[in-house]
Amino acid sequence: MSIQHFRVALIPFFAAFCLPVFAHPETLVKVKDAEDQLGARVGYIELDLNSGKILESFRPEERFPMMSTFKVLLCGAVLSRVDAGQEQLGRRIHYSQNDLVEYSPVTEKHLTDGMTVRELCSAAITMSDNTAANLLLTTIGGPKELTAFLHNMGDHVTRLDRWEPELNEAIPNDERDTTMPAAMATTLRKLLTGELLTLASRQQLIDWMEADKVAGPLLRSALPAGWFIADKSGAGERGSRGIIAALGPDGKPSRIVVIYTTGSQATMDERNRQIAEIGASLIKHW
């Protein structure tokens, strides 16, 4: 067993022997301040990774656009098919120029040779490549099948209805392509620590998230040296922004954090800054 596999296998073990965790309302004060600064709703939840206990939450059962955070769930569904012998990570998928959609920095470079399922998941999570996500959605049967996968996990809230990039439209009061912070946090925890996926697939999923290259201005910008984070960000229309993450000190994750916002007129930089400040408060009061 590799060191990384050992780390993920012992996530519940280490967490069980940690000192009790206590909620700190100071972080919620910052979440509410972010709402004021952005002029928009902000949803927040913080779960203990081992027990699933909610440590703090704000608007945990209000719907927010998922945006690209759905790509972690998508690759979880792909990995479940791999575990069941219905898919192979090494299978190569070929596609054409007509398949390319807006923001496809990886797939646009491989029109000639195609990409493997493993490479597509890596591109979808680490670079948020939209064509990679659409190609992977095709392998599982489309958005409705991802929703069905989530329902089978016990998540009857999260739903995907459309493809990239239309799913980022974020129309107010439109339930399409949305989740709730509580539902997303619980589902992410199941994917990373539950028995739904094999140990190898859980490790692969967290490795992809740990290698995320496009979430630097968010929670990662607030992390002290030595902290662990595996995350996936999302951005959408109407001032929408979000991030889902597993993080913790001492090089291992111990909490799940989900943050979503929508309806702001603020710039992307300002949305990023507010999420980073929430992260800084979380870490300060850990």
Rank of each mutant, 00 (worst) to 15 (best):
S104E: 01
E102P: 14
K109P: 07
H285L: 09
S254V: 12
R81S: 09
E102M: 12
D177M: 01
A215L: 02
N272Y: 02
G141C: 05
A40M: 09
V106W: 07
Y103K: 02
R220N: 03
G85T: 07
K284M: 10
S57D: 09
I206R: 12
R41M: 11
E62Y: 08
A15G: 15
P143Q: 06
K144T: 14
A34Q: 09
V78L: 09
Y44A: 02
I45Y: 10
A132S: 08
D250V: 10
P253L: 10
Q204R: 10
A40E: 05
Y103W: 15
W208V: 02
D129S: 01
A16I: 12
D83K: 04
I171W: 14
T178I: 04
Q97V: 15
L192D: 01
E35N: 03
T138W: 10
H94M: 14
M180Y: 14
G234F: 01
L160I: 13
G239I: 00
P60G: 15
R91P: 01
A23N: 06
G242A: 10
Q265Y: 12
S2R: 09
P249S: 08
G90Q: 11
L19Q: 15
G142V: 01
T179G: 01
L247Y: 03
S2C: 10
N50V: 12
M268Q: 08
N134D: 06
R91A: 07
P224F: 03
R176G: 06
P165W: 05
I45D: 02
A124P: 00
Q88H: 15
Q203E: 15
K190C: 10
C75A: 12
P12Y: 13
E175N: 13
M184F: 09
C121G: 05
A266Q: 11
S281P: 03
N173M: 15
Q37S: 14
N168P: 02
V82E: 05
C75V: 10
S240V: 02
T147F: 02
N173Y: 12
H285Q: 10
D36Q: 13
I229W: 02
R81G: 06
D129T: 00
L160E: 02
V72A: 08
I45T: 12
T179L: 01
G90T: 13
F58W: 14
P60T: 12
I11M: 11
S104F: 02
D269M: 11
L55K: 08
W208C: 03
A84M: 10
K190F: 08
A132T: 02
M268A: 09
E270S: 11
V21G: 08
P105F: 05
F228D: 03
Q37H: 12
G141F: 04
E277S: 10
P165Y: 05
S233G: 09
M67F: 04
T158N: 01
L282P: 00
F228P: 01
S233T: 13
K30F: 07
K32A: 14
I283L: 11
E169A: 13
P253S: 09
D36F: 15
P217E: 10
E61T: 13
G234K: 00
L74K: 02
E175R: 12
E87Y: 05
P224N: 06
G52W: 05
